[in-house]
């Protein structure tokens, strides 16, 4: 079976920097939220926002690799590598949310309030 060179998806006339700029803007929004918000649950949501921005960037680079001068096989491997990174980021994000929200619940049960400014027990 010969591999057809037909590209999938419909991205061919969207420039790469649009995707990258969107990823950068979403990441910056998430970073601002992590710094600014006081509610730990909202801070977690902002972390998810940042992870998703990174996923978008990974997939963009998986799709747009014409210009690296890669051979066809290497380009296919690079495309798969980008997608696999997204899969693992999703797995890590799921584990992180489960443990992190569990910790927030434990803090809430112990102290009846959750606020990132008041949680300074671990600071010496």
């Amino acid at each position: 079976m010969t591999l057809a060179m037909a590209p999938t998806g419909i991205v061919n006339d969207v420039p790469i920097e649009w995707f990258l700029l969107l990823g950068a803007m979403l990441f910056a929004l998430g970073a601002v939220g992590v710094v600014v918000r006081r509610n730990p649950v909202t801070v977690f949501m902002c972390i998810e926002l940042m992870l998703n921005a990174v996923n978008l960037t990974f997939l963009t680079f998986a799709r747009y690799q014409n210009g690296w001068g890669l051979k066809y096989e290497n380009a296919q491997q690079a495309a798969m590598n980008g997608q696999m990174m997204v899969i693992f980021v999703m797995a890590v994000a799921a584990a992180e949310v489960a443990v992190g929200l569990g910790i927030i619940m434990a803090i809430f049960r112990a102290r009846r309030e959750v606020d990132v400014d008041d949680l300074s027990t671990l600071r010496n």
Partner: peptide
């Protein structure tokens, strides 16, 4: 960089 010719 442009979209590469990827596997279908």
């Amino acid at each position: 960089m442009k979209p590469g010719a990827v596997d279908p």
